[in-house]
Design a protein around this nucleic acid. Structure first.
Lengths: 342, 342
DNA sequence: GTTGACATCCAAAACGTTTTGGTTTATACT
DNA sequence: AGTATAAACCAAAACGTTTTGGATGTCAAC
């Protein structure tokens, strides 16, 4: 059927060992033979059988990525970009990327176990870390290579890349405080997620510097979808004393909030200020363009992937930890506090 | 290291052949032995080595999906959902999904070639078909299994799933015509894409039934991003005689148009009507919620994947062709034509 | 008591690589 | 002449499966 190393060997009158070694650049094969082998290989259209290689080498050259999704429908632009970042870097490094989506829970754990048991992947990228993360506990207990995008409550012992959400939120807080807002609401991600409390703390501390306190009744929890932003936004805006600024913990929820505000004939950026987090591509072209904290997700995907490959290839032993400093992307969704809003 | 079929064989005092056959449910092994094997396998925590299986069986149980992206940043919610649909179905059927992103062109073709040559995938899912599709030409010339999501200029000879974009656009046309619009603009996808002209034809014919003609100067071409919708929307709305309805060929561009309109203090759904296509989750919670043609992308992903697996497993020989009838999701982004707009 | 059918089992080959542990030949140094 | 060193090569084993083509034993039928 397709050419194998054997066919080449026959053609050049050498052993398969020699052919293999020539192909792999060993130096115990003469330059002439090497060239001959390389040429005939090309001529015959040889390309190695990946599975034979993997079987022999006992490694899969594959990275696993299990996306946690709440509904089967999964359409967060944020993850798409991350995926592209990871995937392209993986391809560059000669690795395959094995993707599946699972909702958090037992099914998810099974997915990890299966991939490990079947030795199908050499390492995992764990995304959207939780404060107590069973996936990470499991991987650590198995001593299986992985890199996390995000931290956990106890993350001293593994490699991760994360953005400094605390700092990011302080930037937001400072900006909003300078706009003289005082009744400030916040829509958090689900409480179990690691970045939830970090962002809240950043916001609290940031506002604290301006002696503004965050009213508990203005703190809500969403599920990071636009729908949830819309619903919670509606609740907040229907309050007798509604907030003058709403800080959403991701862009999608911020969009939902903007829709809810606009449904109530409020002008976003004037009557009400809204901020997001992530800076997905759409944020620049929403109406109004969204003020948000920028995360270079595509690059982060690449970094995480590269780090994992290094770990797999034993070029790294100590955990690597990267914390990126974000910046605030100021656009038009916020404005000076107006008295007339009540 | 990890348990193999050999270890089990040793333990139960049978040959590896028998163990293998027991595990695979052949009937030339006695019920007792079979049970014994199954039990010890479980007990020892056996799970087969995927690569050994694949090497032996000469098939990869893997489906390839190469996403065509224009920029490295890729964040279309539409594709995310498709991906989830494909991925989950693949997992259910015991297949791996190998994903990468490439921009259309020579790199893309190489990616296909590499995966085929290395026998890494058993089949491909081709998405976002072009009128003349080199990928499909190539796959057909190689007689390599694939299923397309979308048609091409000549698609009589391969399997595909597509939505009837022509019909979808007729629905839009009828709806818009009934709202008494006459100056109607349209933002098309890049001309090379197969669905571009189908949708335009649907719109033309649909409007034709109401004796409305589509002015050439109102027909523009976008690149399916929100940004491009914004830019083209801006152009259209800055025309001396601006359109009263703008038909965008996907939701993302429709959002861009809405932003552009709102920047100009137009009320979408009153001063100007906007429609999209796809019905991505966000469309329901935009402001205003977007009137659009629904595509069950998640399910389509599943269908395409299932079809491909059947082809790979030789359960199908003739090309299967599925054309889904869409429906119009009427929301608030359109309204009766108002005279005062000029 | 031979034959055939059936149930149960298995040794060996095969899939396509890489790695191990050599051998052979030529060259250089005493 | 003998011995070390280096260069170029290779047979065989190994990775973990599945499949091929039997082998063996038992039982029923003739």
């Amino acid at each position: 059927m397709s050419v194998s190393i054997k066919d080449i060997a026959k053609r050049v009158n050498r052993s398969i060992t020699t052919v293999s070694r020539a192909l792999n650049g060993y130096d115990d094969v003469s330059p002439e033979t090497k060239q001959l082998v390389l040429e005939t290989a090309k001529e015959m259209g040889y390309s190695p059988n990946t599975f034979a290689q993997r079987l022999q080498k006992q490694q899969s050259d594959t990275i696993g990525l299990i996306l946690p999704t709440f509904s089967p429908r999964f359409s967060d632009p944020y993850f798409s970009e991350l995926l592209a970042g990871i995937g392209n870097m993986a391809a560059d490094l000669g690795f395959d990327l094995l993707v599946s989506t699972r909702s958090p829970g037992s099914e998810e754990k099974e997915a990890y176990e299966k991939l490990i048991e079947g030795r199908r992947v050499d390492g995992f990228i764990v995304v959207r870390t939780r404060k107590q993360d069973q996936r990470i506990d499991y991987l650590r207990s198995q001593d299986f290579p992985f890199v996390a995008f995000g931290r956990t409550d106890d993350c001293s012992q593994f490699s991760y890349v994360d953005e400094d959400g605390y700092f990011g939120m302080r930037l937001v807080a400072e900006y909003i405080a300078n706009l003289k807002h005082e009744r400030i609401a916040c829509i958090l991600p689900p409480a179990g997620l690691a970045f939830s409390e970090k962002r809240l703390a950043g916001l609290r501390d940031g506002l604290g510097e301006f002696n503004i306190s965050l009213d508990e009744s203005y703190i809500k929890e969403g599920d990071l979808t636009q729908k949830s932003g819309y619903q919670i936004g509606s609740e907040l805006l229907d309050l007798p004393e509604k907030p003058t600024a709403i800080i959403a913990c991701n862009d999608l929820m911020a969009f939902g909030v903007m829709s809810a505000a606009q449904d109530r004939n409020l002008v976003v950026g004037e009557d009400i200020s809204v901020t997001g987090f992530d800076d997905i591509p759409m944020s620049e072209y929403s109406h109004p363009p969204l003020t948000t904290v920028h995360q270079p997700v595509y690059q982060i995907g690449g970094m995480v992937c590269e780090m994992l490959v290094k770990i797999i290839q034993d070029e790294i032993d100590d955990p690597q930890q990267v914390l990126l400093q974000p910046n605030l992307e100021i656009r038009q969704s916020c404005g000076l506090m107006k008295e007339k809003v009540n």
